[in-house]
Amino acid sequence: MSTPVSDALTMTGRGLRLGRRNVDAVITSMMLPIILMLVFVYFFGGAIDTGTRYVTYVVPGVLILCSGFGSAGTGVSVSEDMKGGIIDRFRSLDIGGTAILAGHVGASIARNLVATVLVFGVAFAIGFRPSATPLGWLAALGLLVAFITAISWLAAAAGLLARTPEAAGGITFFMMFLPYPSSAFVPVETMPSWLHGFAEHQPVTPLIESMRGLLLDQPVGNTPWIALAWCAGILAVALAASGALFRHRTK
């Protein structure tokens, strides 16, 4: 008997299979953050003073950047489904909209976790040496998965809002841009004063600071809770928006 959970798992498997048909986009979303990390570490790292080895400083930011690249593809996939008419076929099989969208999000999470492993592998190869406790590793992974889930649902809502896959890709560009005006690559204090407010109070800065502290076994204070609050807020808005948009697009 079909259930919403089994339908979502089936749709997740479908999303992963679809990724194999668009290998170039998957490879790009996985490799571009790694290339950027290498560029920042070897081209600019020597000129940036972070109080520690630059590779140690930059890895958490690259992980978040990688999540943005990987999740942005969710919006394009959802838009392609809406444009291609496959949604009507799914609905005739009594598969709900939540399960369809959850499948895209589940596939995004799986792809992002693979990309995270690749980023960590390259980071270790170029000198990243975290000192996290087992609990710290679990906490950092939990924060990363929470962020990936939230922005993947947000990307799904963007895919429903856009009328073409190209437009969906444009809307989700913001997710890929957000780590740059944050503490991902340089300390916030080094930015122009007019940018401080935004850099300090946007979603990814507390997330990056939390992951950096957890991976290096340093005090993090209440920053992880702030990061989780941001993730919960984004997720709540994305779920509400995607539900309303799906009903509107399929009525």
Rank of each mutant, 00 (worst) to 15 (best):
V5E: 06
D7I: 01
A8C: 11
A8I: 12
A8M: 12
T10N: 11
G13A: 13
G15Q: 09
G15W: 04
L16M: 10
L16F: 00
R21T: 11
R21N: 03
N22A: 15
V23Q: 08
D24W: 14
V26I: 14
V26Q: 12
V26R: 12
S29Q: 07
S29K: 04
M30E: 03
M31F: 14
M31H: 00
L32F: 15
L32N: 00
I34L: 13
I35F: 15
L36C: 13
L36D: 08
M37E: 08
L38W: 00
V41P: 02
F43Q: 14
G45S: 12
A47E: 14
D49P: 00
T52D: 11
R53W: 07
Y54Q: 12
T56N: 15
Y57I: 04
V58G: 01
P60I: 02
V62M: 10
V62Q: 05
V62S: 02
V62D: 00
I64P: 09
I64L: 11
C66V: 07
S67M: 14
S67R: 02
S71V: 09
T74M: 07
V78Y: 06
V78P: 08
S79H: 06
S79V: 08
M82Q: 13
M82V: 14
K83F: 11
G84Y: 07
G84K: 08
I87N: 06
I87G: 10
L93C: 10
D94R: 15
I95K: 09
G97E: 08
T98G: 12
T98E: 04
A102M: 12
A102D: 05
A102E: 05
G103W: 10
A107N: 10
A107Q: 05
I109R: 08
N112R: 01
G121D: 06
A125Y: 01
F128Y: 14
R129L: 01
S131N: 13
A132I: 12
T133G: 10
P134D: 01
G136I: 02
W137L: 13
L138E: 06
L141R: 02
G142C: 05
G142S: 11
L143N: 07
V145R: 04
A146E: 06
F147E: 02
F147M: 08
F147D: 01
I148R: 05
T149N: 11
I151C: 03
W153G: 00
L154M: 15
A155T: 06
A155C: 05
G159Q: 04
L160R: 08
R163F: 05
R163P: 01
T164W: 07
P165T: 04
A168T: 06
I171A: 14
I171E: 09
I171M: 15
T172I: 04
F173T: 15
M175N: 01
M176A: 10
P181D: 02
S183Y: 03
A184E: 00
M191T: 08
L195F: 09
H196C: 03
H196R: 13
F198Q: 03
A199G: 10
H201T: 07
V204R: 03
P206A: 06
P206N: 02
I208N: 03
I208Q: 05
L215M: 15
Q218P: 05
P219V: 07
G221E: 13
P224R: 07
I226N: 09
A227K: 13
L228D: 05
G233V: 11
I234M: 06
I234L: 10
L235Y: 09
A236C: 11
A240N: 06
A241P: 09
S242K: 00
L245W: 09
H248P: 02
R249L: 13
R249P: 00
T250A: 04
